[in-house]
């Protein structure tokens, strides 16, 4: 069985691509899938930080491409999950140091070692984005519900339909149900109304998720972070299982109870 390659992208930067990649990858790994994450953001690598694996990196993607090590040597194992690896990007190099063909070759070679390969795409729609999209079987678009993120996501969907014919799925990140219910922010329906693609999941706004990423422990590893359930649900949907959308606390009862 060979792996399914899923690229996580967004167009706009800072909407949570890397955090989403790390958490979905870890959630898939905890569901007993063999998962390899690939950092496609050469020159601005972050995925290793969010996964907390920075100190164990010896080789990177560029070393593999330029023949300084074998593919398996460059993979960094995450000990917290049964089978989760990271193929790090080079921090010292540039997006143009790897061609689309080389990226496809590396990812194709990785297919035999995993069930799922998640590529963390850089922001933008240039070379690095195209390198990350080229090997993908599926694409996950991460967006928040704010106007610039949606505009950029819409453009990326257009490019995917026009140039790549890759079916995109949508993850709405940092969703604030309370503001949406008050009519001050777009609701899930408003977002879907514009983007009109399949919804894979909605991650509520929660500072705990941000803090967990900052500490190098993806939120799904921390049983105290309840909102991490959103990532388990997305992982289940990626696996093809039907899971209903999470219910969002919009204030009143839970807010009073926990004071947030």
């Amino acid at each position: 069985m060979t792996a399914t390659i899923i690229t996580v992208t967004s167009g706009k930067g800072g909407v949570g691509k890397t955090t989403t990649t790390a958490n979905i990858a870890a959630a898939l790994a905890l569901a007993n899938q063999r998962v390899i994450t690939v950092d496609g953001d050469i020159g601005l690598r972050n995925l290793d930080l969010v996964l907390g694996l920075e100190n164990r990196i010896v080789y990177d993607l560029i070393d593999v491409v330029e023949g300084r090590c074998s593919l398996t040597q460059a993979l960094v194992r995450d000990q917290r999950a049964p089978a989760l690896w990271l193929l790090p990007a080079a921090q010292t190099r540039d997006k143009t140091d790897i061609t689309t063909d080389q990226m496809i070759r590396v990812c194709t070679a990785l297919r035999q070692y995993a069930d799922y390969i998640l590529i963390d795409s850089p922001a933008g729609i240039e070379h690095g984005f195209q390198n990350s999209i080229a090997p993908a079987d599926r694409v996950l678009i991460v967006t928040t519900s704010d106007v610039s993120a949606l505009r950029d996501a819409d453009k990326v969907i257009y490019l995917l339909e026009r140039d790549w014919r890759k079916p995109p799925g949508l993850v709405i990140n940092r969703y604030n149900a309370r503001l949406a219910q008050k009519g001050e922010m777009r609701t899930i329906d408003d977002v879907l109304d514009i983007l009109a693609i399949d919804l894979l999941g909605v991650v509520p706004e929660d500072p705990n998720i941000v803090l967990a990423s900052d500490r190098g422990t993806p939120a799904v590893y921390d049983p105290k972070i309840q909102t991490a359930q959103a990532y388990y649900n997305i992982a289940q949907r990626v696996l093809g299982n039907n899971v209903p959308l999470m219910r969002f606390s919009t204030g009143s009862f839970l807010t009073n109870l926990f004071g947030r």
Binding site: V147, L150, R151, D152, D154, K155, Y158, L159, E161, I194
Partner: peptide, 20 residues
């Protein structure tokens, strides 16, 4: 979708949305 462009000399009839 965003970034898409349609320019014609004729009248245009679009059956769908024109996104921001």
């Amino acid at each position: 979708r965003s970034g898409q462009q349609l320019y014609r000399h004729e009248h245009i009839m679009i059956m769908g949305d024109v996104n921001p």
